[in-house]
């Protein structure tokens, strides 16, 4: 790593922290507002002592965490490479003695780390307001999902200008087709399509197991990590070899 790029880490950290907090703020908005409303009506002590209210809030929390992780990963990852190219930032960034693929790899790692750290605030915040929730499963789930979506976004950004729309389309298509393919007989080409798309279905299954504290399906985990790594490496190779401007 060049000296300039290593020193630039603090700017990457700053940028990543600002982006990573956006989904967490949305999460607090979605869950925090009902909690605050309830607490205002009955008081914090009564809310914490109310078993029914707690069960309802825990159910909300269980639904919210995967949503925050998915939306957060999409928000954090979009525009990762494509925006720099589209807006012409690459002209400034890469007239400096910096290797572009290393720059984006550093940005990816820092962005993923910041996203995972920001997601930890959701169980911590919930614990402070209502009742303690384990942080580690949220961290693991966020890391897995952030890695998969981030790698997909990086590859989409290396290939196209419209990376956000491409990633969203692929995520939606995968999320619909892969669970269907796992449960029912589909036409051959649909099954093939479901098999070659990024493994959002297996990632959902792994995340569900991690968050519920169940045993993780190892082949599914390997599939997700392997696919994500393949996309990340492909993206870095493309950044290295393809023209930086279009």
């Amino acid at each position: 790593m060049s000296g300039g790029l290593a020193a630039y880490l603090r700017w990457h950290l700053r940028d990543a922290a600002l982006r990573a907090f956006a989904p967490v703020i949305i999460a607090f908005g979605l869950l925090g507002i009902p909690i605050l409303t309830m607490a205002q009506a009955s008081g914090w002590a009564a809310l914490r002592a109310d078993g029914d209210a707690q069960r309802g809030l825990l159910a909300g929390y269980a639904q919210l965490v995967p949503t925050v992780i998915t939306l957060g990963a999409l928000l954090v990852a979009s525009g990762f490479v494509a925006a720099d190219r589209d807006r012409g930032y690459v002209r400034f960034l890469f007239s400096a003695p910096v290797v572009p693929w290393r720059y984006y790899l550093q940005r990816f790692v820092v962005g993923l780390t910041a996203f995972v750290a920001a997601c930890a605030l959701v169980p911590i915040g919930f614990g402070l307001m209502i009742t303690a929730r384990p942080v580690a499963p949220v961290l693991v789930s966020a890391a897995l999902y952030g890695y998969l979506i981030g790698a997909l976004a990086m590859l989409a950004g290396a290939l196209t200008r419209r990376d956000g729309a491409v990633v969203l389309g692929i995520v939606m298509l995968s999320s619909i087709l892969q669970p269907l393919a796992a449960q029912a007989e589909l036409a051959g080409w649909v099954e093939f399509l479901a098999a070659i798309l990024p493994p959002l279905g297996p990632a959902d299954a792994v995340r569900g197991a991690v968050l519920a504290g169940r045993a993780v399906d190892r082949p599914a985990l390997v599939h997700v990590l392997g696919y994500a790594t393949g996309m990340l490496v492909s993206a870095l190779v493309l950044i290295r070899r393809a023209p930086l401007v279009r």
Binding site: S2, G3, G4, Y8, F92, L93, A96, P97
Partner: peptide, 11 residues
């Protein structure tokens, strides 16, 4: 400052 950092100018 950002661009100076990327250019490798020592802190």
């Amino acid at each position: 400052t950002r661009l100076a950092t990327l250019q490798g100018i020592p802190a």
